[in-house]
C-alpha cells in the first residue's frame, strides 16, 4: 500500500500545487485576495472546451488561445472592478467573490449545468513503482514544479520581480523610487491569471467540469495557501503535498470515509494554524516575503 500512497499522494499534491501557485503569487506577493482565481481557471477550461468541441480548433492552439483570452478578460475585469479599489482589501475580497459568481452564471447560461469533459493532454496511464498513474497527473505535477521554479526565478532574479516585491512591501516607497505601481499590480494580476488559466487547462481534463467547479477548487486553494503561509511559494508547495498526502491517506486508511478527504485537509490546516497562526512558512514581517 505504501507505494500506492506515495505515488497517488504526489499526484494529488501536484494538482493542488498547480492550483495554488497563481493564487499564492497574487495573494502573498501583491496582497490582492482574489477569490475568483479558480473561477478564471474554470473559465479557461470552458474556453478550451468550446474551442475544441464547438469550433474544432487544434487542441494545443486552443490551449494557448484559452490562456490568452482568460488573461485578457481577467485583466480587463481587474482594471474595471478591482484596480480602482485595490487599496481596500475587504472591498477587493468581496468584488472578487462577485466576479467568481458572475463567471459561474455566465457559464451556466452558455453551457448549462451539464458536466463536461475536456480532451486529455496525455491520455492513459504510466506505471510508477508498479502503481498506475494517469499521464495527465504526471504532467500536472511536472508543470506545477516548473511553474513554481519559474515564478521563484522571476521574483528573485529579474528587475520585474524585484519591482513586484517592492510594490508588495511598500507601495508608497515603490512609487517614490519610480516604479509604476498601477502597472506592476496589473502585470502581477495578468501573471496570476495566466497561472490560473494554465491550471484550468491542465487540470480541466482530469476532472468533471461544471459551472460550480471553481468553488470546490477554491476551498483546496485556500487551504493550501493558508496552511503554507501567506506570501510563501515554498510554503504553498509543501502544503500542497501535505494536503495531497492527507487526502490520499484518508482514502486508503478510511475508505468508508473517503468523502471526508476534504474535511481531513481542512482539519490539518486548522491544527497547524492553531499551533502556528502564520502557517507553515508564513511571514511575520514584510521583509521576509519570499
Amino acid at each position: 500500500m505504501i507505494p500506492e500512497l506515495i505515488v497517488n499522494g504526489a499526484a494529488t499534491g501536484g494538482v493542488f500545487a498547480l492550483l495554488a501557485v497563481g493564487f499564492s503569487l497574487i495573494f502573498g506577493v501583491a496582497r490582492i485576495i482574489n477569490l475568483s482565481h479558480t473561477a478564471f481557471g474554470m473559465l479557461a477550461a470552458y474556453l478550451l472546451y468550446a474551442l475544441v468541441t464547438s469550433y474544432g480548433l487544434n487542441f494545443y492552439l486552443s490551449v494557448l488561445l484559452s490562456i490568452l483570452l482568460t488573461v485578457l478578460i481577467g485583466t480587463l475585469l481587474y482594471r474595471l472592478c478591482l484596480h480602482p479599489v485595490r487599496e481596500h482589501e475587504l472591498t477587493v475580497l468581496v468584488i472578487s467573490v462577485a466576479l467568481g459568481v458572475l463567471i459561474q452564471q455566465v457559464m451556466v447560461q452558455l453551457f448549462g449545468g451539464t458536466f463536461r469533459s475536456l480532451p486529455s493532454f496525455a491520455a492513459g496511464y504510466l506505471e510508477v513503482f508498479g502503481v498506475r498513474v494517469l499521464k495527465g497527473h504526471l504532467l500536472v505535477l511536472g508543470i506545477a514544479l516548473l511553474s513554481l521554479l519559474a515564478l521563484w526565478l522571476l521574483l528573485t532574479r529579474t528587475k520585474l520581480g524585484i519591482a513586484i516585491r517592492a510594490t508588495a512591501q511598500d507601495r508608497e516607497m515603490a512609487n517614490l523610487v519610480g516604479i509604476n505601481v498601477g502597472w506592476i499590480c496589473t502585470l502581477t494580476m495578468a501573471l496570476a491569471l495566466a497561472l490560473a488559466a494554465l491550471s484550468g487547462t491542465l487540470i480541466g481534463p482530469l476532472i468533471t467540469l461544471s459551472p460550480w467547479t471553481w468553488l470546490q477548487l477554491l476551498v483546496v486553494v485556500l487551504a493550501v495557501v493558508v496552511l503554507g503561509g501567506l506570501g510563501s511559494l515554498k510554503g504553498s508547495l509543501i502544503a500542497a503535498f501535505l494536503l495531497g498526502y492527507t487526502e490520499t491517506a484518508v482514502v486508503f486508511f478510511v475508505p468508508m470515509g473517503s468523502f471526508l478527504r476534504g474535511v481531513a485537509s481542512l482539519t490539518v490546516m486548522l491544527i497547524v494554524l492553531v499551533l502556528r497562526p502564520e502557517g507553515l512558512f508564513g511571514i511575520s514581517f514584510e521583509e521576509e516575503r519570499l
Binding site: 500500500m1 497517488n8 497527473h137 482530469l206 470546490q216 473517503s258
Partner: peptide, 17 residues
C-alpha cells in the same frame, strides 16, 4: 467500501486502492 463525495472530481486514489 469506498464512499466518495457525490461531486468528487478525482477517484484515482479510490481506484488504486
Amino acid at each position: 467500501a469506498w464512499r466518495p463525495s457525490h461531486v468528487a472530481t478525482d477517484l484515482t486514489s479510490e481506484l488504486t486502492a
